[in-house]
Design a protein around this nucleic acid. Structure first.
Length: 425
RNA sequence: GGAGAGGUGGCCGAGCGGCUGAAGGCCCCGCUCUCGAAAAGCGGUAUCCUGCCAAAAGUGGGAUCGUGGGUUCGAAUCCCACCCUCUCCGCCA
C-alpha cells in the first residue's frame, strides 16, 4: 500500500510509475473521492466540535445540579446529522481504501523501464552451461527412468501439477532442503523459523496477495483461511502490528515450507515436470531492515541465494526485472535463473525483492529508535533461497550422465550419506 | 466441543457514563546535582487525520482503549456480534 498522502502530493510521479508498470488506474475517480472525503470530513469535524463543547456544558450543568434538557434536545438533531455524515465519510474512505490497496508499489529509480520480460537486463552470468554428446533429456524423463519421480501416480492421487518423489528423489529433495537451510543459518546468519502453512485474510492482505490476487490462492472451504503461496506471507507477518526495537534490525529469517498456488491462467504452460506445480517446497529468506540500508540488504540477500547455486555448481544468470515485469508489491526485484539444458534456456529459480515500506505499511510493521520520537516503518525484503523442486530439476538435467545416472555435486554428497550418483532403482 | 477470565500507550498497569488522551510505574530525552558516572530531584515523552503557515516550528480542531455495530446530548466505561489470548473439562496426533 502506498501512503495516500504520497499519492496525493506526488501524483505526477506516481502516475508515471504506474504507466511504466503498465498499470491503469482511474485517477479521476481517486481524486474525486479524495476531495469529497475531505469536504465531508471538515463538515463532520465542525459538528463534532460543537457536540463536544455542548457535552462539556451539559456535564458542567449536571454537576451544578442545573437542568440541561433544552440543550440536550437541541443536540439530538446535531447527533443525527453527525451519524449521517459519518456513514457518508466511511463510504468514501472505503472506496479510497479499495483503490489504494490495488495500486502497486513504485519501482525504485534503478529499475529499468520496460514493457515485459523481454526488457529485463542481465546483470550477472555465472558458470558455463554443460555440453552434452547427446541431446540432454528433460528432468521428468530422467526422473521417471530412474524411478525417483512419478507424475502419473501423483495425478492419480490428486490431479495434474502435483509431484510424487520416490526413493533417492525424495532423499534428494530433503538433502537440498537441509543443505540450503544449513548454509543460510550457519554461514549467512539467518534464524530458522517454521511458520503455519495456512493463514488468515488479514495476513494475506499484509503482504499484498489480497485483495487483488485471490484467484491465485487456494482457500479453505467454509473458513477465511488460505494455503500459503510462499513463506514470505507467514514469515513477513511474524512482526505484523509490532514496533521493533531499532537495535534488533536487521532481522533475517529463513524457512522451508511447501507453497500452494492455483496457477490459474497458466494452462498449457510447463505442463510437464517440476517447473510449475500446485505444491512445491521453497526455502525462503526474509529480512526486516532500516530504510537506509534496505538496498544493501537486497544485495546481500541476492548473494546468499546465489551462493546456493555456486555450491551446487549450477550455471545461472541474474536479471533485474523491468518496470513492466516487476511484481505488485516490489520496488525492485532480481530474478536468478538457472540453466535448463533440455530447454536450452535459463529458468527462474529465485526472486529477490525489496518491498521498501509497501508491505510494512499494510502489515503495520514499525521500528523505534531509542531516544528518538515516534516510530517509522521498516523495509521488508525476501527472496527464494531457493525453490527446491526447480533446483532438483536443474540438478537432474545439468548432471545427467550418458549412462542415464545423475551425478551429485560435492556439496550435497554429505547430505545423501556420501552418495555420488543416483542410479536406476 | 463445554465452562470461566481477559484484551487499555514503546512496555507493565489503573480506570466511577461527563472534570480521562487516559492515574501510577518502567523505558527514553532534557535539566539540576557531580571532575565524570550512578543515585536522587525537576520537567518532558502515544499515534493518525485535518485547518492556518511556502515549509519546518508552532498553533487550532477531530479521531483512536482488540474489531464491527448499537444505546446516549455524551462511551475506554453500558448492550450485541465477531476475533484473539489464558485457565479448567472433554476429545485427540
Amino acid at each position: 500500500m502506498l501512503e495516500i498522502k504520497l499519492v496525493r502530493e506526488n501524483l505526477e510521479r506516481v502516475k508515471t510509475a504506474m504507466e511504466n508498470r503498465g498499470t491503469a488506474i482511474d485517477w479521476n475517480a481517486f481524486l474525486k473521492h479524495d476531495s469529497r472525503r475531505k469536504k465531508v470530513l471538515s463538515e463532520l469535524e465542525e459538528l463534532r466540535r460543537q457536540r463536544n463543547r455542548v457535552s462539556d456544558q451539559v456535564a458542567e450543568m449536571k454537576r451544578n445540579g442545573e437542568n440541561a434538557d433544552s440543550i440536550i434536545e437541541k443536540m439530538r438533531d446535531v447527533s443525527t446529522t453527525i451519524r449521517g455524515l459519518e456513514k457518508e465519510l466511511s463510504e468514501y474512505e472505503a472506496a479510497i481504501d479499495e483503490m489504494v490497496m490495488t495500486i502497486p508499489n513504485i519501482p525504485h529509480d534503478t529499475v529499468p523501464v520496460g514493457k515485459d520480460e523481454t526488457d529485463n537486463p542481465v546483470v550477472n552470468l555465472v558458470g558455463e552451461p554443460p555440453s552434452f554428446d547427446h541431446k540432454p533429456l528433460p528432468h521428468w524423463t530422467i526422473g521417471e527412468q530412474l524411478g525417483i519421480l512419478d507424475f502419473a501416480r501423483a495425478a492419480k492421487i490428486t490431479g495434474a501439477r502435483f509431484p510424487l518423489y520416490l526413493g533417492a528423489g525424495a532423499g534428494l529433495e530433503r538433502a537440498l532442503i537441509n543443505f540450503m537451510l544449513d548454509l543460510h543459518t550457519q554461514e549467512h546468519g539467518y534464524r530458522e523459523v517454521l511458520p503455519p502453512f495456512i493463514v488468515n485474510r488479514h495476513t494475506m492482505t499484509g503482504t499484498g496477495q489480497l485483495p487483488k490476487f485471490e484467484e491465485d490462492l487456494f482457500k479453505l472451504e467454509g473458513l477465511d483461511y488460505f494455503l500459503i503461496p510462499t513463506a514470505e506471507v507467514p514469515v513477513t507477518n511474524i512482526h505484523q502490528g509490532e514496533v521493533i526495537d531499532a537495535s534488533r534490525l536487521p532481522i533475517a529469517y529463513t524457512t522451508c515450507t511447501p507453497c500452494f498456488r492455483s496457477e490459474a491462467g497458466s494452462y498449457g504452460k510447463d505442463t510437464r515436470g517440476l517447473i510449475r506445480q500446485h505444491q512445491f517446497n521453497k526455502v525462503e529468506l526474509v529480512k526486516f531492515s532500516r530504510p537506509e540500508t534496505s538496498y544493501d540488504e537486497l544485495e546481500s540477500l541476492l548473494d546468499n541465494a546465489e551462493t546456493v547455486l555456486n555450491r551446487l555448481e549450477l550455471p545461472y544468470r541474474v536479471i533485474t526485472l523491468c518496470t513492466g515485469d516487476i511484481g505488485f508489491s516490489a520496488a525492485k526485484t532480481y530474478d536468478i535463473e538457472v540453466w535448463m539444458p533440455s530447454q536450452d534456456v535459463y529458468r527462474e529459480i529465485s526472486s529477490c525483492s525489496n518491498f521498501e515500506d509497501f508491505q510494512a505499511r499494510r502489515a503495520n510493521i514499525r521500528f523505534k529508535e531509542k531516544g528518538k520520537k515516534g516510530t517509522r516503518l521498516v523495509h521488508t525484503l525476501n527472496g527464494s533461497g531457493l525453490a527446491v523442486g526447480r533446483t532438483l530439476a536443474a540438478l537432474l538435467e545439468n548432471f545427467q550422465q550418458p549412462d542415464g545416472s545423475v551425478a551429485i555435486p560435492k556439496a550435497l554428497q554429505p547430505y545423501l550419506g556420501g552418495l555420488k550418483r543416483i542410479e536406476s532403482y
